[in-house]
């Protein structure tokens, strides 16, 4: 019932100040059915962001005036749901740790690049990004109180406990729960928990109109 989003549905940006390498990595990804666009300047990529979203960015670390880490931080301000994969010709232990822990990188690749590892990292990145976007879309449809109830609900709290924690009556919690179920078109707590993890549900029933379709896999 729950499927990850296939990689081919999303696109990837490859950022390296060496235009040849950026183009080569893009073509490599394309050969593995991942659509990718090469960029040589981080500013170009940031400027393109409002109109063009990428699921994953494969970025060099040492670049001209803006390094890969600064770029990642700037990009996260625009879009927290983008996955980052770093590559570098100057590998150091400190950078490797920073790349993953501080800048949310999924992997840290040493040049010359290990192709299989790159493909795997980008695939993971695209799937992670899709989940993040679904979670963001889900929470965007809720009211503030519905969001609070939802968060406690998926963590396994009962209606009574939620009512106590939020200082409202159990009856009101039930109302919020009904609204959440209606908005997400789910039929039970298990599906709600799956949604909170960013999983995709199927099949697609009729959309009541106020909830994004992207949460549901298209009916076959």
């Amino acid at each position: 019932m729950i499927d990850p989003v296939p990689a081919r549905a999303s696109s990837v940006a490859v950022l390296d100040d060496d235009a040849d390498l950026a183009a080569t990595v893009s073509r490599l990804l394309a050969r593995h059915e991942i659509t990718a666009l090469p960029f040589t300047d981080p500013h170009d990529l940031l400027n393109a962001w409002p109109t063009r979203h990428f699921a994953c960015v494969v970025s060099d670390i040492q670049m001209g005036d803006m390094d890969g880490f600064a770029f990642a931080d700037a990009l996260r301000k625009h879009d927290p749901a983008v996955a980052m994969v770093f590559m570098t010709a100057w590998p150091t232990t400190t950078h490797a740790v920073d790349a993953v822990r501080r800048h949310g990188g999924l992997d840290y690749l040493e040049k010359p690049i290990d192709e299989a590892r790159l493909i795997a990292a980008v695939g993971d990145g695209v799937a992670w990004s899709a989940r993040q976007r679904r979670i963001a879309a889900l929470t965007a449809a809720f009211t503030k109180r519905e969001r609070e109830v939802f968060d406690l609900l998926v963590r396994g709290h009962s209606n009574k406990e939620i009512a106590q924690r939020l200082g409202i009556s159990a009856r009101t919690v039930e109302d919020h729960r009904a609204a959440i179920t209606a908005k997400t078109r789910t039929n039970g707590l298990a599906q709600l928990i799956a949604l909170s993890r960013g999983d995709v549900l199927r099949p697609l029933p009729a959309n009541p109109g106020n909830f994004p379709d992207s949460l549901w896999e298209p009916a076959k």
Binding site: D20, L21, T24, V25, L28, A89, P112, I113
Partner: peptide, 17 residues
């Protein structure tokens, strides 16, 4: 080593292809 590894990255990917 760095200067070599940059073009070599491109070369290795294209050669494999």
């Amino acid at each position: 080593i760095h200067e070599i590894s940059q073009p070599l990255s491109t070369l290795a990917i294209e050669a494999a292809h």
